[in-house]
Simulated assay, not measured.
Amino acid sequence: MKISLITPARQHARTGNRTTAMRWAHILRGMGARVTVSTAYAGENADLMIALHAWRSADSIGAFRARYPDRKLVVALTGTDIYRFQQSDPETTLGSMAMADALVGLHDLVADAIPARFRSKVRIIYQSVPPLSRRLPPLRGVFEVLVIGHLRAEKDPMRTALAARALPESSRIRIVHLGMAHDADWAEAARAEMTVNRRYVWRGEVPGWAVRRALARAKLMVLSSVMEGGANVVSEALVAGVPVIASRIAGSVGLLGGDYPGYFPVGDTAALTGLLRRAESDPGFLDDLRARCGARVPLFDPARERASWQTLLAQLTGKA
Score class of each variant (00 low, 15 high):
residue 111 A to Y: 02
residue 82 I to K: 04
residue 137 P to Q: 13
residue 118 F to G: 05
residue 111 A to C: 05
residue 87 Q to D: 12
residue 87 Q to P: 00
residue 94 L to G: 03
residue 134 R to Q: 15
residue 130 P to M: 03
residue 165 R to C: 08
residue 133 S to Y: 00
residue 133 S to I: 08
residue 85 F to C: 02
residue 145 V to L: 07
residue 181 A to V: 10
residue 103 L to G: 12
residue 147 V to Q: 13
residue 100 A to I: 12
residue 121 K to L: 09
residue 118 F to K: 03
residue 180 M to V: 12
residue 172 R to W: 01
residue 131 P to K: 13
residue 131 P to E: 12
residue 124 I to W: 06
residue 90 P to H: 10
residue 133 S to G: 11
residue 96 S to R: 03
residue 175 I to E: 02
residue 160 T to D: 02
residue 126 Y to G: 02
residue 167 L to H: 07
residue 88 S to F: 06
residue 127 Q to Y: 00
residue 112 D to I: 00
residue 129 V to L: 00
residue 126 Y to W: 14
residue 148 I to W: 04
residue 157 P to M: 11
residue 117 R to Q: 15
residue 135 R to S: 15
residue 116 A to V: 14
residue 105 G to P: 07
residue 170 S to V: 01
residue 109 L to K: 12
residue 180 M to Y: 04
residue 124 I to N: 01
residue 176 V to C: 01
residue 140 R to G: 03
residue 147 V to T: 14
residue 182 H to F: 13
residue 165 R to K: 14
residue 171 S to Y: 04
residue 173 I to K: 01
residue 119 R to D: 07
residue 120 S to H: 15
residue 92 T to P: 05
residue 118 F to E: 08
residue 176 V to M: 04
residue 173 I to M: 11
residue 163 A to N: 09
residue 148 I to D: 05
residue 127 Q to K: 14
residue 97 M to L: 13
residue 84 R to Y: 10
residue 133 S to P: 06
residue 143 F to G: 01
residue 123 R to H: 13
residue 156 D to R: 13
residue 147 V to Y: 10
residue 157 P to F: 11
residue 119 R to E: 10
residue 150 H to W: 12
residue 106 L to N: 08
residue 153 A to Q: 14
residue 101 D to G: 10
residue 143 F to M: 06
residue 82 I to P: 02
residue 152 R to S: 09
residue 160 T to F: 06
residue 124 I to T: 15
residue 89 D to R: 11
residue 83 Y to V: 00
residue 138 P to A: 14
residue 174 R to C: 03
residue 164 A to S: 15
residue 177 H to Q: 12
residue 155 K to M: 11
residue 148 I to V: 15
residue 113 A to Y: 01
residue 159 R to S: 11
residue 128 S to V: 02
residue 123 R to E: 14
residue 93 T to R: 05
residue 155 K to W: 11
residue 160 T to Y: 05
residue 97 M to W: 04
residue 132 L to C: 02
residue 154 E to N: 05
residue 169 E to W: 04
residue 137 P to F: 13
residue 170 S to H: 09
residue 179 G to P: 06
residue 137 P to W: 14
residue 160 T to W: 05
residue 157 P to D: 09
residue 154 E to H: 08
residue 110 V to P: 02
residue 153 A to L: 10
residue 181 A to S: 14
residue 139 L to C: 09
residue 123 R to D: 06
residue 101 D to A: 06
residue 112 D to P: 00
residue 108 D to G: 02
residue 104 V to G: 10
residue 126 Y to P: 01
residue 162 L to D: 11
residue 98 A to P: 01
residue 153 A to P: 00
residue 142 V to G: 01
residue 109 L to N: 11
residue 138 P to M: 13
residue 151 L to S: 07
residue 136 L to R: 15
residue 81 D to N: 09
residue 96 S to D: 03
residue 88 S to D: 13
residue 147 V to D: 06
residue 102 A to P: 07
residue 170 S to Y: 00
residue 98 A to R: 15
residue 111 A to T: 01
residue 160 T to K: 03
residue 120 S to Y: 02
residue 90 P to R: 07
